[in-house]
Simulated scan of single mutants.
Amino acid sequence: MLRTTGRRAITATAALALTFTMAACGAANESGGSGGGGEDAVSGAIKGAGASTQEQAQAEWAAKFSETSPDATVEYSPDGSGTGREKFINGAVQFAGSDAAMDDKEIAAAKKSGCTGETIQFPVYVAPIAVTYNVKGVDELNLSPDTIAKIFDQKITKWNDPAIKKENPDADLPSTTITPVNRSDESGTTENFTAYLDEAAPDSWSHGATEVWPVKGGEAAKGTSGVVSTIESGNGTIGYADAAQIGDLDAAKVKVGDEYVEYTPEAAADALEGAERVEPDSKTNYAVELDRGDVEDGAYPIVLVSYAIACSDYKDPAAAETVKAYLEYATSEQGQKDASKAAGNAPLGKDGLQNAATALKQIKTD
């Protein structure tokens, strides 16, 4: 099992900061809706930062949220998971998004500075991680966990390598050199991907699960958009990215048991519903453990779980109300449907919605 509260550090993204001036949603609740202003309208100004994987979802939440009170201002900068956590710890932002949950040391650090109350964290965005590639003449590709691990560890260096040919007997594989593309910044997506390699291909991947890409060479790019752009502009390139953001790039089917499975958002959501919590009795920490090396047949095994991070106590009551209202909308049934339609991620299931609702009740607004 991988504890998603492992090593943490600073992540950045090439994307520019997203700034949304929008109404907060006092009427949002766990059954969902963006609220309607009036007596329930809020007017606090808050800032958030973090995962670039959440960028499209945050943009959609912002757009829908802006239909409510005009006096609330919310900013979200997709600077990367580690940067978002760091800013939250230091009190520079009131909420964060992260593809890796905060660990005990980070929570303790936040208590001394940015969040003197309890740190609240729960899954808000779930998506498959695609093994995406750009090879002329290859529109379909099957890859086993061991082959994926050897490609990214640069042990397999040509597209017509016997190991790849064996899994793709009908493909016209060229002798083109394989160019692996990884994140240059410290990334929760990298941690989720290397966790999969560590658990599903332990004999072929010796680098463990880490936010810092451990193999030298290849191509490195900053942020999700940087990885996708680098793969698109090359030939023979292969990388890993949030499947919702790969655009027209092809993605490999991944071997699970005796079959090769295509990614789907639904399979990612199923993985979250079956995950074990790190602290089962906590009402504030909903970080989960995923067993990526042992998934059911037909399920897609490379899954990204991205978190919302907030605080139970804020010095500014108006900010507390706005954080709570905004995240209540994001984790409502409607908010999740809106994000899924715009970004292609998987809506949270019943348990995920309830966990978020319970966590957000811990935010003090009096």
Score class of each variant (00 low, 15 high):
Asn168His: 07
Ala209Lys: 14
Tyr240Arg: 03
His207Ser: 12
His207Ala: 13
Asp170Gly: 07
Asp242Phe: 01
Arg277Lys: 15
Glu199Val: 07
Gly226Cys: 13
Tyr260Met: 08
Lys150Met: 12
Ala221Arg: 06
Ser206Trp: 00
Ser233Cys: 02
Lys216Leu: 11
Lys216Phe: 09
Pro280Leu: 06
Leu173His: 04
Asp161Pro: 01
Trp205Arg: 04
Gly217Trp: 10
Asn192Tyr: 00
Thr237Val: 07
Ala251Tyr: 02
Pro180Thr: 06
Thr176Leu: 08
Ala268Lys: 04
Ile148Trp: 11
Thr210Val: 14
Gly226Ile: 08
Asp198Pro: 01
Pro202His: 11
Gly247His: 01
Gly257Thr: 06
Asp270Gln: 14
Asp198Ser: 14
Lys166His: 03
Gly226Ala: 11
Thr147Gln: 10
Glu232Arg: 14
Val228Gly: 12
Leu249Cys: 10
Ile178Gly: 02
Asp185Cys: 09
Ala195Val: 02
Gly234His: 01
Val227Gln: 10
Ala209Gly: 12
Val227Met: 08
Asp248Thr: 15
Gly274Glu: 12
Pro162Trp: 03
Lys158Leu: 04
Pro174Ser: 11
Ala163Phe: 04
Glu262Thr: 15
Ser187Arg: 01
Asp198Thr: 13
Asp185Ile: 05
Trp213Pro: 03
Thr179Gln: 00
Ala221His: 12
Leu249His: 08
Gly208Gln: 08
Leu197Ile: 05
Asp203Leu: 06
Ser204His: 04
Thr194Ala: 07
Glu276Lys: 15
Asp281Arg: 09
Thr237Arg: 09
Pro180Lys: 03
Lys283His: 09
Val227Tyr: 07
Ile151Ala: 09
Glu219Arg: 04
Asp161Met: 03
Ala209His: 09
Thr264Val: 05
Ala244Phe: 02
Gly257Trp: 08
His207Tyr: 14
Ala271His: 06
Ile148Ser: 05
Leu272Arg: 09
Ser206Leu: 09
Glu199Lys: 12
Glu273Asn: 07
Thr237Lys: 12
Lys150Asp: 08
Glu219Thr: 14
Thr157Phe: 06
Val215Asn: 06
Gly188Ile: 05
Tyr240Ser: 13
Ser282Ile: 10
Asp242Gln: 01
Leu173Glu: 11
Pro174Arg: 10
Pro214Met: 04
Glu211Val: 14
Asp161Cys: 02
Gly274Lys: 14
Lys166Glu: 13
Ala269Gly: 15
Ala244Gly: 15
Gly239Met: 03
Asn285His: 11
Lys150Ser: 06
Leu249Met: 08
Ala267His: 06
Val261Gly: 06
Thr237Asp: 08
Gln245Ile: 00
Asp242Asn: 14
His207Leu: 02
Asp172Lys: 15
Glu279Pro: 02
Glu273Tyr: 04
Thr264Pro: 12
Glu211Ala: 13
Pro280Arg: 08
Ile151Val: 15
Ile151Leu: 12
Thr230Ser: 13
Ala243Ile: 00
Thr189Ser: 07
Gly217Ile: 13
